[in-house]
């Protein structure tokens, strides 16, 4: 009673090669999936209740970041603008614009606007906006070309490796104090060097990548 035909060896070899390929594929997938933008939501532009344009307000009209994000210099949270801040202008101009209807409704009903969060960090990361601002890290270092975004999109993947890329070598990411909120700043020949800024801001690089700096 022959159970295995002459081609059994061929099938067996093919199956072993197949198993090997599947293993290689799985390992490669584990490695590659995090690098895909879909996984990190990088470059993604979520829907917002009001299609707010940073490009129009910042680059066009010249509003300062801190006009709306009021607590960015003092608090861990940059702060989302209250309805009243929107209304400092929009009670006077575009008062009947349809796209601002949620804003008016929010004022009338005294309920805040529910913006969709673009940058989310896990709770075990103690991120603080104020210290980054105080040490000369500009907004665009993390938020990308925010002054040119018609709709806000996520400019970085927010992986720990991305955080560490700067925490391990912060010098190239620093700028003079008066340029922190400039969305179109470029380093020029007259800019103080990164190392000079490190000294000026008293940044101790040897402690910056300690676990406890972000995970307290």
């Amino acid at each position: 009673m022959a159970v295995f035909g002459p081609r059994a060896n061929l099938f067996m070899t093919a199956a072993l090669v197949g198993v090997f390929c599947v293993c290689v594929f799985l390992v490669a997938a584990i490695w590659v999936v995090p690098l895909v933008d879909y996984n990190s939501q990088q470059q993604f532009t979520p829907e917002q209740p009001i299609p707010f344009s940073h490009k129009h307000h910042v680059s066009g009209l010249g509003l300062d970041c801190r006009y709306c994000h009021t607590t960015v210099e003092e608090s861990s949270n940059a702060g989302m603008p209250s309805t009243a801040i929107c209304m400092t202008c929009h009670s006077q101009i575009w008062t009947n614009a349809a796209m601002l209807e949620p804003d008016r409704k929010s004022l009338a009903e005294n309920t805040p606007i529910r913006w969709t969060r673009v940058y989310t960090l896990p709770d075990y990361v103690y991120f603080d906006h104020s210290i980054h601002i105080a040490k000369g890290v500009g907004c665009t270092e993390c938020h990308g070309p925010i002054g040119d975004m018609a709709m806000t999109w996520k400019a970085n993947n927010l992986y720990m490796s991305w955080c560490l890329s700067c925490h391990r070598d912060p010098a190239p990411h620093l700028r003079p104090k008066d340029q922190v909120f400039n969305p179109h700043w470029r380093r020029t020949d007259s800019t103080p060097s990164g190392d000079a800024l490190l000294v000026q801001y008293h940044i101790k690089t040897e402690a910056l990548s300690d676990c406890g700096i972000c995970h307290r």
Partner: peptide, 8 residues
């Protein structure tokens, strides 16, 4: 020992 996401 892989570090695609965490960088450590």
């Amino acid at each position: 020992p892989y570090s695609t996401v965490m960088g450590v």
